[in-house]
């Protein structure tokens, strides 16, 4: 019963994602705002499901998730099969979700009382990571205004975790081009976020 109802729920969700994606493709800006949280929720739910099937899987990562999300949505999609577009939207969804998460967690930290002294061996890289996400998001915003292609490459590489080849496939570019664009973008972004 439980499984059945879940399937129905996600089918309904997939359909709504499908509709939103179509609206996004048709240039409806508000649809993107609606789509991102829905898509992110879907990705998370999929992550849970995949992990429940294979708890110790060392290979499960964001890329696999996005692939699976795409397959599921494509199955339900009435004519929606623009895989590249889907990945670009998914990348924006991940970016949106991660930046949102990082902002919230840092705001909470500022709002909280004093943080106690750390343990002797404390390394809190997760905290650094949230700072990196926010700084990168801002820098990426500036980069995308002058070089949209680089912006998309960074989104796919950084927020989704696609390889050079996968990103090339999604963007219909040669891997060499993607690699060069990525290298230049990374150098620039790195300087921006470490200044």
């Amino acid at each position: 019963m439980r499984v059945q109802s879940n399937t129905n729920a996600s089918a309904a969700q997939a359909l709504s994602i499908d509709r939103l994606l179509e609206r996004v493709r048709d240039g409806d800006g508000s649809a993107l705002d609606e789509l991102l949280p829905v898509l992110y929720g879907e990705l998370r739910r999929l992550a849970h499901r995949v992990r429940a099937r294979n708890p110790a899987s060392p290979t499960l990562n964001t890329t696999a998730l996005v692939h699976e999300a795409y397959e599921r949505i494509a199955d339900h999609g009435r004519g929606w099969n623009d895989r590249a577009h889907f990945f670009r939207v998914a990348a924006q969804a991940m970016r949106h979700a991660l930046v949102d998460y990082s902002r919230r967690s840092r705001a909470q930290k500022r709002g909280g009382d004093s943080v106690p002294e750390s343990l002797s061996s404390f390394e809190l890289v997760a905290e650094e990571k949230t700072a990196e996400v926010i700084a990168l998001d801002e820098a990426l915003g500036r980069l995308a205004t002058v070089d949209q292609r680089q912006g998309e490459i960074v989104e796919l590489r950084y927020f989704v975790g696609l390889t050079i080849e996968e990103a090339a496939d999604v963007l219909s570019l040669s891997p060499t081009t993607v690699k060069r664009e990525w290298t230049a973008a990374r150098a620039w972004l790195y300087r921006e976020i470490t200044r």
């Binding site: 964001t62 991660l98 972004l189």
Partner: peptide, 27 residues
């Protein structure tokens, strides 16, 4: 500056690790 940034980013694997680990509780 950019050459130096590239050198550091390349050696430190900066931006190579997707931040999704923050959300994705992958062991």
């Amino acid at each position: 500056e950019l050459v130096e940034s590239h050198r550091q980013a390349d050696s430190g694997q900066v931006l190579e690790v997707p931040p999704a680990a923050l959300l994705d509780p992958e062991p």
